[in-house]
Nucleic acid binder design. Structure first.
Lengths: 347, 347
DNA sequence: TGGAGAAGTGTGAGCGCTAACACAGACGAA
DNA sequence: TTCGTCTGTGTTAGCGCTCACACTTCTCCA
């Protein structure tokens, strides 16, 4: 990878000159065209190595009208879920020879989304993955016209746009059914903000599981995903633990819509002297790395973020390269992880 | 943003034709050149809007030899620290009109680093930020020759390369001094893997604080950043809590090198019936969002990842645009966050 | 031995933009 | 007036690559 002494990086013409062939032959070698004699190929390769030549992607993009660049738009990539999805996505794209550029937004209203799209479009991305967990993002997206394909992640399957999502509904059912199976009369629920599709689906799954089992359905308590909101709700829950308060069913198990809130709930219960799982069982959702070491280790639902990232890239590249395959909505299966926080209560 | 009826997106020539000027005038309008009459500018702008024209970045890059693209190489972007840094970095770059592409690696040996650099170089990045927390990454980086500037984050200040880092040493001192100040005879330390520069600096800061205070220096116990390793080490610590075992000083306070391990330590202590902070005070490092709700809420050191990201982009763009400013090493100050896990023991 | 077809290579014209220069007209100073 | 200078605009030549085609050699079979 020797750097040429001159100021400018070597061009294809330089390589051609050194190898004693035309620039077109160099191009053929570079793109693995079959009709090149072995000796010629070797000579060109030698020249390339000698000069430390590297194809100029801008010129290539200009000539081919293909940038081989993908965009990603996401909210709050500092959290475990989006960050993991992003990472899986980037790896999958790189494998396919694409460059990916992510735009990380604080909020995802229509303006911010449009702006992010413009930014990416300016750079000539051939497609975009939008991690659209919030309803407003989905709505904004639905109205947006783009000159390239768009794929959603966690955007629900109601959209015309193709998308990948974890089966949140199933995950919530699994947790709820597990809690009922270990002997709880019913399961309370700390929900995520209902403008989040994931939160909504988890709530729906929980409700369906209870109804199917003929269990009473307590009111859902709504948090904002943060440990603090979990803590506040946990304090309310602690007050009615084990008791039958008013019209509501007895509280002995709680399904919390994410692990961070579950941490807050656990803390509030413990401060109030309510034991987990002896008095109240608690389950979460996400399986963040810390969940295994919560007090007590948390039963939760694991999401395969890597798989979600890979699947969305596949969907997107299918569309860009106009492959025949036309799946539009992929679902990734969740996995129930049972830990001490829902251990069977001593009968 | 009307999409033209023809297959191809409009070019500068199309805009020029519609506006009745030359393509060069369009170019001047687009790049804000002053010498364009107001009326001409308006006419061109109207044509741009009408056609939904957008500058082709590949052609622009080819003509200017500037791609306005930056690369980022990082390990394990799924963790809170790197993910936050990345996010801050991306925002800062976008503000400056740059596109950023991140490559997320699993391990950062020389091979992987070279490959990532090649990938980014192929796409013509004008500079790269490498988040190099591990010694081997720094070593590999030192040997690498690149045709563009490189800036490190958390790479220590020993390198010839410019870089940004949090003052890990100071952070560790602050925690340790705080623990001594609340009355502990000495402070034990659960360290991160010593091939990580951050871990090393935290250990050094802890040791220096103890030595300066004339406190005995217990052996450092080395973990791998994971909650599990913290748990294992916590079990060992629980065994000697409050006791003076062999030659080692009394254990009443522990400084853990990151919050995740601290969670494991807390759990191990609590399982062994050791109370925090009554029997043993525990402090962490990072201030992850969960730390405030640990059992008990964790005293820790907050890092301003956003600031780190912004600073590194500034350093990089300074170099790319060859500005006069030549700071080479920036340090971001840490902030001690005191919570219940180190509350003053009842004397 | 000839000629069709394949294999291997070269030529020229763009891709859509910016940089450099050319040039016309307006304006103030000598 | 006459020049210089500034303003506003157009013209031309690339940037480094690929695509389409032309051309030269082979190969093989009638």
């Amino acid at each position: 990878m020797r750097q040429s002494a001159t100021d400018r990086p070597p061009t294809m013409a330089d390589v051609a000159r050194v190898a004693g062939v035309s620039h077109q032959t160099v191009s053929r070698v570079l793109s693995g065209h079959p009709n090149v004699r072995k000796a010629t190929r070797a000579g060109v390769q030698r020249a390339i190595d000698e000069l430390g030549y590297r194809r100029n992607s801008a010129a290539r993009a200009l000539a081919t009208r293909r940038t081989r660049t993908l965009g990603v738009i996401a909210v709050n990539t500092t959290f475990h879920g989006p960050a993991s999805t992003l990472s899986g996505l980037e790896g999958a794209a790189r494998e396919q020879g694409y460059l990916v550029s992510a735009v990380s937004l604080r909020t995802i209203d229509k303006d911010a989304l449009t702006q992010a799209m413009t930014h990416l479009a300016t750079w000539g991305v051939e497609g975009v993955v939008v991690i659209t967990s919030q309803r407003q993002a989905v709505d904004a997206l639905a109205e947006l016209r783009t000159p390239f394909p768009v794929v959603t992640v966690e955007g629900g399957h109601s959209l015309a746009l193709p998308g990948v999502a974890l089966d949140q509904y199933l995950g919530a059912r699994l947790v709820t059914e597990h809690l009922l199976a270990v002997g709880h009369e019913t399961v309370w629920h700390v929900a995520g903000p209902q403008d989040w599709l994931e939160a909504e689906a988890r709530t729906a799954g929980w409700r369906a599981a209870l109804e199917d089992a003929g269990a009473p359905v307590p009111p859902a308590l709504v948090g904002d995903w943060s440990p603090l909101s979990g803590f506040r709700i946990g304090q309310q829950l602690a007050g009615r633990a084990g008791r039958r308060s008013g019209p509501d069913p007895r509280l002995s198990a709680v399904f919390v819509a994410n692990d961070q809130m579950a941490l807050g709930v656990l803390r509030a219960l413990s401060e109030a002297g309510v034991r987990t799982p002896a008095d109240v069982a608690v389950a979460g959702f996400d399986d963040i790395p810390e969940a295994e070491f919560f007090p007590p280790p948390l039963t939760t639902v694991r999401q395969d973020f890597g798989a979600i990232g890979r699947a969305s890239i596949r969907l997107l590249i299918d569309r860009i390269e106009e492959r025949a395959v036309r799946e539009t909505h992929l679902t990734v299966a969740p996995q129930l992880i049972v830990r001490a926080s829902t251990a069977r209560p001593i009968a």
